[in-house]
Structure formats: structure tokens, C-alpha cells
Amino acid sequence: MTETKELVKRLADKHGRSRESLIPILQGVVQEERFISSETMTEIARELDISAATVYGTATFYSFLDTQPRGKYVIRVCKTISCSMKGKHLIMQELEDLLKIKVGETTPNKKFSLLETNCLGWCHKGPAMLVNDEAYTELTPEKVREIINEYMNK
């Protein structure tokens, strides 16, 4: 069995094979591989006995279900108004300088992806960002440097 097959089977064993299991399975793929390839989508369709178009339709609807390759650590900076007012652009600038990539890109070593996202629900402690599932708030350029340094050494 290929790695993809094994992963999909393992996730289906855990979450079930009904239509309702689809999103938990897709989330599981993202947790492990950081993105859902078309090969994986086809495999999920086969395993759940639904059409690949259905899997594709669901996967591409949700912003956290990435369908293009992402780095090990996906950084999502909140761009909604409260964070934007508290200096989100400085945070983005700092991240772009540190990682030497632009928004939407992934570092060549596949370690970091830099994205923007809508309201993260930390408006009183902006600017805020997520690194995978972890939330970081009240960011300053210095704080961002510390956080990224830590991840670089992981």
C-alpha cells in the first residue's frame, strides 16, 4: 500500500466512512501533510465511495483545508480591521523579511508558509497570528522574531 492509501485508510478507520466523516478526514490529512493533494482526494473518494468531485468541492470550500503544498509551519496573520489598526502591516513586513518570502509563498526548505486570514477572534489583543493551531497575540516585530527563531530551531 502506498503512503497516501495508508493515511486515508487510517483516518477512515478513525472517523468512519460516512459522508459526515469527510471533513474530519480532510482535516486529518492537513494535520499530517499540511495539504490535500489531488491524489489524496481521489483516494478519499474511493475509500468513502463518493465522487472525487464531491471531495474536491468540500475540500476547496474551506480556507484551512489547503489544496496546495504548504510548509511544516503555516503562519496565518489576521488582516481584519482591529488587527490591521494595531499595526498588522509591520508584523507582515517583519515576517516577510525574516522568512524571505511574500504572502502566499512557502520557503524553499518547505518549513514555513506565510498567509493572511480573516478575523481570528483576538481583536482586543491584536495584531494576532496563528502558527498551525497555536495563537500568538499582541505581536510586535521583536516578538515575531523570537517566535520565528524558536520555530526555525525546531
Binding site: T80, I81, S82, N118, C119, G121, W122, C123, H124
Partner: peptide, 9 residues
């Protein structure tokens, strides 16, 4: 909870 400016939940 996704409304911009809401974080009570």
C-alpha cells in the same frame, strides 16, 4: 464565532 470584532465565545 467569526464576526469581526467578536471573541466572547
Amino acid at each position: 464565532e467569526g464576526e469581526p470584532g467578536t471573541f466572547k465565545d
